[in-house]
């Protein structure tokens, strides 16, 4: 199943990959939020350059280019609709650039953070452990359920199931022989998982202990200070911009 590979994270040994996931989460969310607020070309260019540096440091420029190619049509739509409504080319470029800025902030975070790290970060930020456990479990079961889906699909095709026949309603109904066994299997599996959780004493103590605790390193502090400086530069730029 090729779509599992679509999860773009790849294990690499770079400074960015090794950073604390909480720090990366903060910085990438921060950049995306500034991107949503701003419409100023200087700020957009500045933040995009910084993200290009991060992408280069994490050796993910190629991945990023590939994802941009997939977005070309959407960027084109944004640019044309802006141009048609405002009749200004600058406006069209600003809105497209801002879109690239916001989406790349999320991209580099997911390129460099493994699902396990993200689960750990959520837990240690203070997200309720039920939620972060559901998240980790769900990530863990994606390949399992994908395989299950493939098995049911193959089994029903051997029995003569045809998915490419008839109108929309008939085609939708043709999916039921795949979805129903999948749901039955999933409901059965929930009993297994809850037994396993109970056996391991989940929920026995208020506070869970962790096999791997996240700790901030010098690099994390450098990255954080760097990010705060960027925010400071943007605030100073705003003050200057509005006072002139």
């Amino acid at each position: 199943m090729s779509f599992i590979k679509a999860y773009q994270f790849s294990r690499k040994r770079t400074i960015i990959h090794a950073l604390d996931p909480r720090v990366k989460l903060l910085v990438s969310t921060g950049v995306a939020i500034v991107g949503i607020i701003t419409l100023d070309p200087v700020e957009i260019a500045f933040l995009t350059t910084i993200q290009l540096i991060i992408l280069a440091l994490s050796k993910s420029i190629k991945l990023w280019f590939r994802s941009l190619k997939a977005l070309l049509f959407f960027i084109f739509l944004i640019a044309t609709s802006q141009y048609l409504t405002t009749q200004s080319l600058a406006q069209a470029i600003i809105f497209s650039a801002r879109f690239i800025l916001i989406t790349s902030a999320t991209s580099w975070f997911f390129y460099t953070t493994s699902p396990e790290d993200l689960g750990r970060a959520l837990e240690q930020i203070g997200v309720p452990s039920d939620f972060s456990l559901a998240f980790t479990l769900s990530m863990r079961f994606i390949p399992v359920i994908a395989n299950e889906f493939q098995d049911v699909y193959d089994a029903q095709r051997v029995r003569g199931l045809n998915l490419e026949k008839g109108n929309l309603i008939e085609r939708t109904k043709a999916f039921l022989p795949i979805l129903i066994p999948l749901f039955v299997e999933v409901i059965r599996r929930t009993y297994e998982i809850s037994d396993a959780l109970e056996l391991r004493g989940y929920g026995f103590r208020e506070k869970r202990s962790h096999w791997k605790e996240l700790k901030l390193t010098t690099n994390d502090y450098i990255f954080l200070v760097f990010f705060l400086l960027i925010i400071l530069v943007i605030i100073l730029h705003r003050i200057y911009y509005f006072s002139v």
């Binding site: 456990l133 559901a134 479990l137 769900s138 409901i187 599996r189 009993y191 998982i193 959780l197």
Partner: peptide
């Protein structure tokens, strides 16, 4: 716990 598993 079963609900939690179902959510996941």
């Amino acid at each position: 716990l079963r609900d939690l598993a179902l959510v996941a």
